[in-house]
Design a binder for these strands. Structure first.
Lengths: 345, 345
DNA sequence: ATATTTTACGCAAACGTTTGTGCAAGTATA
DNA sequence: TATACTTGCACAAACGTTTGCGTAAAATAT
């Protein structure tokens, strides 16, 4: 039988009215001209009984919950768990609690999750959409609660987002391979319709084009899975002319590719080079360490939180769209094959 | 200017009272003998205006939020993010939403986080405690909301928990090394006071003892970090008699150890064997793939959720304590060194 | 001494639900 | 035809806050 600790019970025990207690404990004593001694009495009692305001009641009354929703497709994917980690921490440092939901890449789950978050009166939502239709999210952003997209975004949308400059990433990674002398490059992609994949591929193609090699482009694959990386690599290695380099568009794809390469008895980078997207600690400990385009995961999370909170405070949607530059981390998985091709520049 | 959709507005639009609308929309129509036609009218209007009940109001009134709190030390640690992933999904499948907080291994954060969760009226809490004092959590478990511990637990506590049988894990991993002929084993531990570490070390020592080798025990290290694994391995490799095998008590420690081994030009497992705790996909893709004691992460998460929800439903604490068996996954990082020592056991 | 301002607080409505109780009208029973 | 159920719904309190407004008493001004 724990005793209730509410402003009501404090009001009864101190003899002051509920409103006075409320004003004191919510820091409005000054503005409401509550006397020093009253403030002291009430605060003392609050400390004594370890009063903690009900955030439900507060949220109901003020329509502000200091909570944000985080909607991501798969938390067990380390890329997203890293994102979640910085978002949760950053939000907390701004005084916000985070409710995380995992949609498992399912559009219906996504809608339900967002509905559920809104039913909880979250102040705003950060989402990596798995669908392709921005309309309903835009609707929410306009009328209900600010929405900020991360990682994935839509073609033409009014929704603010922050993500990696995937085009640039695709371009630079490919340029690096080209400059190392590779011309037969296999690019293994993830889910083809998603914006990051499309942009990376676009960058890849433009890089090839810059060397006049666009006709040799080989884009394969269809999902961000180890399986996909494995199968596509397996196929490619058994083909008549095998690629001299592989561009894996994610770490999962990379792992699958590595497996296939090992099975065929080839060595990285001597027999085949490989470069990947995303950054993970373990890439440094592979044999050899893997060269990669690193996404600025922490910055993405931090900026998304900043943007969302700004939007919450300004009480109207912002339309900032941020593309952060990825960074090439050079390790030892790409060989410089000094083929005597023209160094066109 | 979005219109409000509450049972009140629906009540006004349909002409029925608030209580009738409430009963219909919360599925109590039958019990309250609301007529078929009334039910139909109200449900139609609810669908039309896309009514979603306010979970704040509902929670305030019923003191039930269908929310659980998840308190973990570090979400960017893949072990915990995997755990979080299954917990979030499982809770969801039981109709619960999860609020995740990251304590960054800080006791004060932990207390604040739990307070914040309680202020939100979560129905229960799953926590990996980073402190060493169970008292305040027990207090909460008794009087406020059910608490279930995962991964870490306390010496003698009434709090229910579910975790790996770390003793068994330490014992079996060590037995495997011993049976492969290793006698000079370096055991690199994480934060020494935590229960998992203590249990793993205890198992390790008992295994050594079973072969009469307890005097040769070498337990070093002090944190679950790459750095720690690296430094301790570095030291050990430069010592007069270097170990023939390393038992890394986590994946981070493993990675550090691998780095040090590589730097010294040694090869795994020819020159030195290594075994680790925890399971991660990437361990299969290292060179060589790493032999390990795998914790049943998904089972831990699933059972923790089950236990918590059971406790919530029964409205009183349970005291189930579960230790799940880890599983040895044999890869290629441990050499069988056929030393001519006595095959005593 | 009266009028005015200031100080310090209380009243009550509102946020959106749930739920115990009450009560008319309709139907069955005697 | 009076009596007793049953049906179908409405009233209003309660959950724990916040906040606009009102107002006695004290302080200051006239």
């Amino acid at each position: 039988m724990e005793k209730k600790n509410t402003i009501i019970s404090i009001s009864e025990r101190t003899g002051f009215s509920i409103s006075t207690v409320s004003r004191v404990l919510s820091g409005k004593a000054e503005a409401a001209r509550i006397s020093k001694s009253t403030v002291e009495t009430i605060q003392q009692e609050a400390r004594r009984c370890n009063y903690k305001p009900s955030l439900l009641a507060k949220g109901l009354r003020t329509n502000k919950t200091n909570t944000i929703g985080l909607v991501i497709p798969s938390i067990e994917n380390v890329y997203f768990s890293n994102l979640a980690s910085t978002i949760i921490r950053d939000a907390r440092s701004h005084g916000y609690t985070t409710v995380t939901v995992d949609t498992m890449e399912n559009e219906e789950n996504e809608r339900n999750s967002v509905d559920s978050l809104l039913a909880r009166n979250v102040d705003g939502i950060i989402v990596t959409p798995c669908g392709q239709d921005p309309a309903w999210l835009e609707e929410i952003n306009r009328h209900t609660a600010p929405v900020v997209l991360i990682d994935r975004y839509f073609n033409s949308t009014e929704l603010p987002y922050v993500c990696t400059d995937n085009y640039q990433g695709g371009y630079e990674a490919t340029r690096y391979l080209l400059n190392s002398g590779h011309e037969r490059i296999l690019c293994i992609q993830g889910t083809p319709h998603s914006m990051p994949v499309r942009e990376r591929v676009r960058g890849h193609l433009d890089a090839l084009r810059s060397k006049g090699l666009e006709d040799g482009a080989r884009i394969v694959g269809d999902s961000f899975s180890i399986q996909n990386g494995y199968l596509e690599t397996k196929l490619a290695l058994n083909a008549a002319t095998r690629p001299t380099a592989i561009f894996a568009l994610s770490n999962t794809i990379l792992l699958g590719a590595i497996k296939a390469i090992k099975e065929s008895g080839l060595r990285v980078p001597d027999d085949i080079s490989i470069i990947t997207f995303d950054n993970n600690t373990f890439l440094d400990f592979m044999d050899p360490p893997i060269t990669r385009m690193s996404q600025p995961v922490n910055e993405i999370g931090t900026l998304a939180v900043k943007l969302l909170i700004q939007s919450i405070n300004e009480k109207h949607p912002v339309d900032t769209k941020l593309q952060l530059q990825p960074q090439l981390i050079v390790c030892e998985s790409v060989a410089n094959i000094h083929t005597m091709t023209e160094q066109a520049g």
